[in-house]
Design a protein around this nucleic acid. Structure first.
Ligand SMILES: [Zn+2]
Ligand SMILES: [Zn+2]
Ligand SMILES: [Zn+2]
Ligand SMILES: [Zn+2]
Lengths: 170, 170
DNA sequence: CGGATAGATGATATAAGGTAACATGACAAG
DNA sequence: CTTGTCATGTTACCTTATATCATCTATCCG
């Protein structure tokens, strides 16, 4: 992946604002463990580590970037290792796939059932998950009118994040 | 194909309904030619053929599938041939990229400037472009609040199309 | 306990999607 | 006719994703 395609965003800028990162990782992992226990999901070592990686990096990561980190932690080095762990996380809402980037990001609202919406900076590739569920009503209506049953909706806005916006001004 | 109309989308424009396909291809090509002439865009043979291919197939096609067809028509056989033609079509609104499928589809509302929204059947991969522009208001508000400038929004709903829905019932 | 079953992991191989870079060709402006 | 611009073609390569088979590990049940 070239830097032009996948520039590395400022890790401290999630949701485009600073935050207590160590705390945010711990909290999310704990929440995931609790939910897996409650719902009899198996948060196995690879899966747990994959979630940790996404949380620690706090940005959208390609499956192969996650794979590399997993491998450094002693897990397999082949693509399916990463894809399977990521599939699990996505399937159960611990992470999301950002279709626009073919990348994955830890959910910032775990526990709340939601259709995620993202804001993606086209300069620095920072990704922020919108706070509220953002379901376009008009689409639901169009779907109903045509007999289409919506199961999942991808909403991804591309543009310029506050940080890059400021840099451009300077 | 269609022009401004009432809020209820025409089912035939939705894509999950029958329509006069030969006519739909011709009309769209003619419209594209007209617009390119008017805006001094160069609808070259490859680009024109690529648009024809997307229109004829009337479904989301991968770049390599388009490439194969282009090659059968006497154009180059290397990926950039297809990607460049598709980039042109997408850049000027004659086609859209469906991020969820890594595929391309001819626009069903050419001429109308719009942020496209798609409904994608997870069974048969049929893709319909929603009639109306579907801009999630809540996302715009979230963006404004955080200082993010939206330039483009991807909206893609995944689910079951009417045809597959009926088959499932049977 | 011992075997059956289901789910998870590992490794191999390959498919599918996408770009960078450079050479050639068409064409219009000067 | 030269120069600049844009389009096309090709080589080479990179990134993303899945199919498949083998192995392992928990869990359930008799
Ligand atoms: Zn989320
Ligand atoms: Zn940015
Ligand atoms: Zn369109
Ligand atoms: Zn279908």
């Amino acid at each position: 992946m070239t830097s032009a395609r996948n520039p590395v965003p400022d890790p401290s800028a999630i949701g485009f604002a600073a935050h207590d990162h160590a705390d945010c990782v711990e909290t999310a992992i704990a929440a995931a463990e609790a939910r897996c226990a409650a719902e009899k999901l198996r948060l196995t070592p690879v899966r747990r580590r994959a979630l940790e990686i996404l949380l620690q990096e706090h940005r959208a990561m390609g499956a192969y970037a996650v794979l590399e980190k997993l491998n450094e932690s002693g897990f397999g080095s082949q693509p399916p290792v990463a894809y399977r762990a990521l599939d699990f996380l996505v399937a159960h809402g611990f992470a999301h796939k950002v279709e626009r980037l073919n990348a994955f990001v830890a959910c910032t609202r775990p526990g709340e059932s939601h259709a995620p919406a993202f804001m993606i900076c086209r300069i620095c590739a920072a990704v922020a998950e919108a706070g509220a569920t953002v379901a376009p009503d008009a689409l639901g209506e169009a779907a109903e009118a045509s007999g289409f049953t919506i199961e999942r909706t991808v909403v991804e806005a591309e543009g310029i994040c506050p940080a890059c916006s400021e840099k451009a001004d300077a």
